[in-house]
Design a protein around this nucleic acid. Sequence first.
DNA 1: AAGAATAGTTGACTAATTCCACTAATTTTG
DNA 2: CAAAATTAGTGGAATTAGTCAACTATTCTT
Lengths: 167, 167
Amino acid sequence: MKTHSTAARGSASRQMPDTGRVSLGRLGDFVGFRLRRVQNQLSRDFAAATSAKGLRSGLFSSLGIIEANPGISQSELSREVGLDKSVTVTIVDELEKFGWAVRERSKEDRRRHELFITDEGKAHLDELFTIVGKTEDAVLHQLSPAELHLLSELLDRMYAACMRDEG
Amino acid sequence: MKTHSTAARGSASRQMPDTGRVSLGRLGDFVGFRLRRVQNQLSRDFAAATSAKGLRSGLFSSLGIIEANPGISQSELSREVGLDKSVTVTIVDELEKFGWAVRERSKEDRRRHELFITDEGKAHLDELFTIVGKTEDAVLHQLSPAELHLLSELLDRMYAACMRDEG
DNA sequence: AAGAATAGTTGACTAATTCCACTAATTTTG
DNA sequence: CAAAATTAGTGGAATTAGTCAACTATTCTT
């Protein structure tokens, strides 16, 4: 069952439409494909907008999570952002080098490193949020607030289902 | 420039929804973050489900596009899947090696290679669609058909906006 | 106290991405 | 029509991201 056929112009066989759009065919029945292309483009826009700062991928998200969850551990951070623990180490190393966040040994569990954002980190995060907000708005400006909210909700439910299955 | 999305930011979601006690903070106001984590997990599931076949990423999507657009050129394929041209070359090389697709020099424009899926390629694509369908269903089973349809539509609109912005 | 489990770290290895140069064919244009 | 610019396809180098296994230190389990 094709739920959403794009352009099914004419009969299937033969040559490419010179003017028309490319058909997704059966691929159009899967959200994974659409998700991937949108996310690809979005993260490319993000990289272009922040290229001056030379941030490694995942650093922005990590700093955002640290800000929202003061004292979070690196393991929890890894789980939330979806990165390997070893990658998180590298990111936190960099955050500390920049002076945007700090590690503090936990008093209760001395294996843990509690993470905190610094004032300087907050300032840079503000800047980054502004940049990302701009690039996202360029893509989302035609989605109504209701649609945007629904999109977030659907993505959250999908993510929750992912985590339930193998989390 | 009453951008809806800007108005929506900051007002909507400040809860700790899905997996637990970790808050998204301001990050929750951006779809890019949610998009990334869902897509990451989804593509990880896909990789796990197809690991036996050892397919390089983008191969499945490429074959799907070739099936839906017989005679498509490698450039057009690259554009549609969102890959670099050189990556597409590698993928088509592999598709030919497997016997799943063929290159044919175009009669009208002898620079072009027209791409066609083979019967064997169709068979394997059927198999892949089944596998991907299963893994997606595990994530999407709780989304209603209407929600699913809306999600696809929103993603398409976002993608169209991306493409419009940078040619 | 012994053993399993968890947090963090390191380094090695593999896959993916980007970038640039190059050939061939076609289109543009002066 | 020839020169220049453009487009399609290819190969390779360099950078980066993602995965994995080993290892220390600490805590939990029994």
